[in-house]
Design a protein around this nucleic acid. Structure first.
Lengths: 341, 341
DNA sequence: CTGTTAGCGCTTTCAA
DNA sequence: TTGAAAGCGCTAACAG
């Protein structure tokens, strides 16, 4: 049975009013040192913790920021989450990590829940399926979008992402410079801004060698955005069974790359002898994979830090900030997954 | 600026009392269908969400369970977390995932915070350094320990873990059956129950071939429990530079294995030609590593589900349950990392 | 510097 | 079945 020690008990024990106790807890107005010590003693003696529900009810803030992501097991999000936490902790905010599992319904339920919890802000890696609602609540609640844009004229908030176009452009250009011409792409669902942009970067690079990449491009495989691992596997399967196989493939994220690698390994397709590959984004434990894909990397903690700063600012300015967009540029980290042809 | 729609606004709009609105929200007592509809309409029109701080203040529960883990980027914890969530969602509880980063101080701060937030229960993968405090609060607050024991007579709560002893025993026995005698172990900090037990399982298996394994055992490397990846690397380095090298090594978790593999690969030590290895616990993307370690595996979602059930029961029974201990047995999944000698 | 008090938004008796 | 009203634990005027 929870016996709740309240501010009253402390006041009683210290023989002061509850207002005084409140003052020593919040350290803003000055209290007689001697009395303050008495209160402090009472607090530790009674093992008192202020009830944050009561506090929130009064102050209208919870000092809690939510980070709602599409896959809580993804190294990217958890690492970015650590970066966010580092910053917001300094301002005495806490992070609540939630998983929408790429589900429109779960995202909806969470948004509702987070509104009830009256979190002070939401950092959102959205499913891309609740744009209307998100735009609506963004008027009142600070929102920072992580990696996926909300396409709605009324949306208010910040957006942070990689520079997807230039990242993929460089990866693809690298393949081109090695002599590749028949280059495949395994991509995620293009209703998501990330994947749309990555596709664009690919098309832009291919255009430099006169290849038109559009929806009919034969070497294009599109996943549905739910299980990118399986999409990667299926995409590799599709591309490597074409009449005329590609000599190189661009994967637009690490999960896709994992799935594709699984396919290649299972089917004894050698990298880079049979096909060269490159992949967008950091890969955990890349050094001990059977092949080291050439990738783009970015400072993930740095992304998290930046997100944290944007959010804190937005909260402190009462959401009265025009929409901002931050792009992190990527660097190529060469592995052993490509060859000259 | 947040304009907060409250129960009062809804009552006004629907032309009923706030008590009636409360009744339709909580769906327990009966309300005239017509009035109910009026209230429902007002709720959706005003886009009203009940304030959970106010609700908590009144009901003394938050319908929130915290999962405080030592590394939020660890696949094990996030997957178990999903399993927990699946169960508790059914009972209308939410999960709050927090990271103590293996730090005694951060753990302390979180425990304090979670008390303030008045979470309904804490699922804890403890640092092992705050046993006294945890035992103290466990009297009032439901606690389920995930993978790390709290050694204190006053602790009340449940404990769930692998059957560490038999898991390592079997892995080690496998090496023995292949003819290995000089077998090394790379282990985590033994003030943690998990690693203590795994060491015990190892010693037990070695005893069957007459080898006494104690603290002076030459082929034993102990990490500090903070960065198991680096410990894995250092441990491999230590063992492979001994006068008389081991022919096989047992790693007691996957992070240790990753670090060791990194060492082996960097130093051109071949697996299993130069040394055989086995590792405790599931490994993500094992299929595409440069070698597939023989491991133990377990149904991680199942562990999460069980933790969720234990917690829900404990909450509903007001923490009036004697301490329970659940052990998940592991299965060996053979890779290509061992050889006969 | 300290105490009294109103009220945050909700649930839940108690009366009607 | 519905409404009035008390009170959850806290903060912040306001008064002294």
């Amino acid at each position: 049975m929870k016996k709740n020690v309240t501010i009253k008990d402390v006041a009683l024990a210290a023989n002061v009013s509850i207002a005084t106790v409140s003052r020593v807890i919040n350290q803003n107005s000055s209290v007689n040192p001697e009395i303050k010590q008495r209160v402090l003693d009472a607090i530790s003696m009674l093992n008192y913790y202020p009830n944050s529900a009561a506090r929130s009810l009064k102050t209208h803030n919870t000092r809690t920021i939510a980070y709602l992501v599409s896959n809580i097991s993804d190294y990217f999000f958890t690492t970015v989450g650590k970066g966010i936490e580092d910053v917001i902790k300094k301002y005495d905010y806490n992070l609540m990590l939630c998983n929408n599992a790429n589900s429109e319904e779960v995202e909806l339920a969470y948004i509702k829940l987070l509104q009830e919890k009256k979190v002070d802000g939401i950092i959102l890696n959205t499913t891309g399926k609740n744009n209307e609602l998100i735009a609506e609540i963004s008027k009142d609640l600070p929102i920072v979008l992580s990696n996926r844009q909300v396409n709605h004229p009324d949306f208010r908030g910040d957006f942070i992402d990689f520079d997807n176009i230039s990242g993929i452009y460089e990866l693809t250009s690298h393949l081109i410079s090695l002599g590749h011409r028949k280059i495949g792409i395994i991509n995620g669902a293009i209703y998501l801004s990330t994947f749309r942009e990555r596709f664009e970067g690919f098309a832009k690079a291919m255009k430099t060698i006169g290849v038109i990449v559009d929806n009919d491009y034969i070497y294009n495989y599109n996943g549905d955005g739910f299980s990118t691992f399986i999409d990667g596997y299926d995409g590799a399967n599709y591309l490597m069974n074409l009449e005329e196989k590609p000599t190189a493939i661009v994967m637009t994220n690490s999960e896709l790359a994992f799935g594709a690698l699984k396919y290649f390994k299972s089917n004894n397709i050698r990298i880079p002898e049979d096909v060269s590959i490159v992949s967008f984004g950091d890969i955990v434990n890349r050094d001990i994979l059977y092949v080291q894909p050439t990738i783009t990397y970015t400072n993930l903690m740095g992304i998290g830090n930046k997100i944290g700063e944007l959010m804190i600012e937005r909260i402190e300015k009462n959401n009265q900030i025009i929409n901002r967009e931050i792009r992190f540029t990527t660097q190529i980290d060469y592995g052993n997954s490509t060859r000259k042809i």
